[in-house]
Simulated scan of single mutants.
Amino acid sequence: MEENNNIKRLIQLYFGKRFSRSGRILFGRWLRAEDGMKEKTAALQNCWEESVTDVTEETLEDWDGLLRCLQPETVFQQTVLSFQRKLKYAAVIALMLLTGAATFFATDRLKPARHVEMAELFVPYGKSRQVILPDSSRVWVNAGSLLVYPKDFTDAETRTVYLTGEASFAVQKDKEKPFIVKTTYLAVQALGTLFTVVSYPGDSCTSAILEKGSIKVDVRSDEHQSEILKPNEQLIYSHTAHTVTVQPVDASLYRLKRSGYLIYENVPFSLLMSSLERRFNVTIHYNSQKYAGESYNVKFAPHETLEDVLNVLHQLVGIHYKIKENVVFIN
């Protein structure tokens, strides 16, 4: 049941335009994967039933073309859809076209030259997960994040994974196959190291933090030279200013974060609230202008509840709040 809810939420997030271009590409890979196909199909049908969309012969042609992209040829030839079923899913394709999904099927620059079976891990709000990759590298994936990776690195030249959200990586050494984490704006390469990448949709920046070893960080727009980070350094790329900043940081704090701590150092109120929304699976309403321009430093233990956190913020910042089910109102 939880897995079905995760699939529904991921598809709802997509149609709600919550993903960046890279996120849409990752969504496309996840949608094409065979795992959970029955549940994905049911969720897409539910999207159609809740929408009002006109279906034309041109839409049906788009549907047939999309099937050829989604499935291997042998599978497509064995798939026989009734005209009525085509109508239903063609409506979903129309929704995808309206939300820009056609771009990642037509221009997926991340698509490998050969077929690679991909696995995906979507972590909903209020959760965190650990996963062991095929090369025995360990990944801690934070709430509201999507990680897509090959099920087998054997024949690949690199060990490339794709991230939307936040994750920490403990990478196994393999000099012949560099380990690369790709996000919308950054490509982070490591040979054997421990680091964190933060790349949430909607955030104003993407960052990479190094705890051990060495990583090379490239801005994917090729506007900047590669940066080599040393332990206890953080690279921040601004999405709006297109600037790169490297600064010292206490990387040991990220070890505590993997243990469940919430740690904020010089973060704006908006990022603090976004993080709490992901951690506690709530929606927080507040006056963004009232708290603009201020930075906050605070730490919360793993056992502290949402109300504990808000009480601390009340004492430190002076906020007044009201909780109604899974919605928080801050005055």
Results as ranks from 00 to 15, higher is better:
4 N>T: 13
9 R>N: 15
15 F>I: 15
18 R>P: 02
21 R>D: 15
34 E>K: 14
40 K>N: 13
41 T>A: 13
43 A>E: 07
44 L>F: 04
47 C>G: 04
56 T>F: 00
56 T>Y: 03
61 E>Q: 10
64 D>N: 07
66 L>G: 02
67 L>T: 06
70 L>D: 09
75 V>H: 05
76 F>L: 14
76 F>H: 12
78 Q>M: 13
82 S>H: 13
87 L>N: 15
87 L>I: 06
89 Y>L: 07
94 A>P: 07
95 L>H: 00
103 T>E: 11
109 R>M: 03
110 L>R: 04
115 H>P: 10
119 A>F: 07
121 L>R: 12
127 K>I: 10
127 K>S: 13
128 S>V: 08
132 I>D: 00
142 N>V: 01
143 A>K: 00
144 G>Q: 06
146 L>Q: 01
151 K>T: 12
151 K>R: 09
153 F>S: 02
159 R>S: 00
161 V>F: 02
161 V>T: 05
162 Y>E: 12
164 T>D: 06
165 G>T: 04
168 S>R: 03
172 Q>G: 06
172 Q>R: 12
175 K>A: 15
176 E>Q: 11
176 E>I: 00
178 P>R: 05
181 V>D: 08
186 L>G: 06
188 V>S: 01
188 V>A: 01
188 V>N: 02
189 Q>E: 15
193 T>V: 11
202 G>E: 01
203 D>F: 10
211 E>A: 11
212 K>S: 10
214 S>T: 13
215 I>M: 10
221 S>Y: 05
224 H>Y: 03
226 S>F: 09
227 E>I: 09
229 L>C: 04
238 S>P: 07
245 T>D: 13
246 V>W: 00
249 V>E: 08
250 D>F: 07
253 L>V: 13
254 Y>V: 03
256 L>R: 12
263 I>G: 04
264 Y>L: 12
264 Y>I: 01
274 S>T: 15
275 S>P: 10
278 R>P: 05
281 N>E: 09
283 T>K: 12
286 Y>P: 00
288 S>K: 15
289 Q>W: 09
289 Q>A: 14
309 V>R: 01
312 V>F: 02
315 Q>M: 05
318 G>V: 08
318 G>E: 08
319 I>A: 03
322 K>Y: 09
324 K>L: 00
325 E>A: 08
327 V>N: 10
329 F>N: 11
